[in-house]
Every structure is written in C-alpha cells, then in structure tokens.
Design a protein around this nucleic acid. Sequence first.
DNA 1: CACGCATATTCTGATTGAGGTATATACAAG
DNA 2: CTTGTATATACCTCAATCAGAATATGCGTG
Lengths: 130, 130
Amino acid sequence: MESFEIIAEPSRRAILSLLVSSQLSVGEIERQLRMPQPAVSKHLRILRDAGFVEATVDAQRRLYRLKPGPLQEIDAWLQQFRRFWSAHIDALERHLDRMYQGRNRPAPKERTATKKVARAKPQDHQGEKK
Amino acid sequence: MESFEIIAEPSRRAILSLLVSSQLSVGEIERQLRMPQPAVSKHLRILRDAGFVEATVDAQRRLYRLKPGPLQEIDAWLQQFRRFWSAHIDALERHLDRMYQGRNRPAPKERTATKKVARAKPQDHQGEKK
DNA sequence: CACGCATATTCTGATTGAGGTATATACAAG
DNA sequence: CTTGTATATACCTCAATCAGAATATGCGTG
C-alpha cells in the first residue's frame, strides 16, 4: 500500500497523531482512541509495513513509535504547492521559513506580505495554439 | 469524499501537480497525462467538489486551476510532525554523542548545544476524530 | 439546421479495504 | 502446567471506488 493511501484512513491518522507525543503500547492506543484492539493491530501492521512506525518488544507489549521517512515524502510532495499558496495567502509563508532553518532565526514579527517569494508562473489567459 | 482520500489517487495527484504551473483545459491535461478523457473529467469532478480546483468556462473548454484550501489543510495536519522530525534528529544526535563519547568521529556540521535546542511545544489537542 | 469538437455523465463489473468476530501466539506469574 | 494479559492473525461480509465503454450535453461554425 502506498503512503498517500495509508494516511487516507482517519484511524491511522489518529494513531500517527497520538504517536507524535511519545511511543505507546497497543493497549494505550486502544484506550485513547476507544477502538477495538484487532483494529488497532491491523492499522499498526499497515503503518509498520509502510515504514510510518516501528516497534520494539517489551515483554508482552509492543511499543510503537513514529518513523519520519514516509511522512517526510508526503511533505516533500506538498512542497511544490507552497509557492502557489503564498501568492494567495501570505500568512502561511513564514511557517514555510521555519522548516529547516527555524532554530537560527529570532522570532519574526514582521507582518508585511510580498517578500522574496516568487509568484507562480504567469498564466496565459487563452494560451492554446492548436 | 474527504481531502486525504482525494489525494490518495495517483492520477489526481498528477493533475494537481500539473495545475501548479498554470491553469489548463481538460484536453491539455488529457494529452499531458495520456489518460482517457472521461477519466480526466471524472477526476476533475471529484477535485472540484472537494474544492481542490475550480473551473471557468471558455467556449466549449473548461479551464481548471488550483484552489489552495484543501491542500493547505493537509499541510496543516502535517505540521505537527515537523516538530517531531526536528526533535527526532536532535535526539539521535544526542544519542550518538553519548555513544561516541571520547572517540574520534568526523566533526558534524554546526550543531547547537544540547541545552539550547528548542523543545517541541506542549501538545495542544487539535481534535481529529472519526 | 447539421456537424464536429470539447467535456460531462451514466452504467457495469471487478477489486479493494474496513469492520467485526473468533482464534492464535507469546509471555509472565502463581 | 494453568491462567491471565497483551498483541497478532484469519476469515467473512459489506460498501466504496476505479477503470472502461458508451452515451449525453453544450457550443461554435459552415
């Protein structure tokens, strides 16, 4: 199963969101999401096969935690649209900045729009030649 | 249909990627993706209903272009994991620091001192439910 | 009006994936 | 060894969805 299909499932997104804070056992997920245990296990199986999570064994328990890979790929696909958005909504553009260099920057307070962000390609109104 | 399911479809992602550069007619999408016309129209219908794209009428043609909303929501969901990634990398570095203590290892590129690292913010629950 | 082009819709069959229930495996403790 | 707990898997059924073919609609032009 492919990464985008994996996160199309609300329960799986819920599990991933839970695991963002800390690693959890199956039982803890089961309780927090109020979802039958076989369902949790099945979703975890899928998530593990796709590399979203990994598990370590602790006696009878399995402790699941996030793995960054697949979600980063999804994020990479979204990257191409961020430029497009900034042309429409510039409130979101700072959040873009912070991704890889956030820790070096003092908190930006400036509210001005239209900075270094390039506009999307000029689009033809009619641009058909055929 | 819900946003995450929409982009689970490879053809729809391809269409969205095409539209990032400029608006296109159905026929242009059909040719660029080498996909039968009814398929294109059906996917566009779904994308339009979900607010990913919008269309304007130009004689017999329809010109489709991106709308930012739904993709932004997806991006917003991913936001919570970006914090995790940086924390994860930091934790890995700290771990390696301990493992390789006193050994010679290639000097890593500038790393902030352990104490200075911005910690992930305390989790505020943004409700994602089934 | 009739034709042709661009796009949309409908129908069908096949596949896939989710939920539920029951059961299997693994381990810890008495 | 027996029991209880934690997790995984198997099996079944149902609903959703995709691809493909055929057909319908809308519009400009001769």
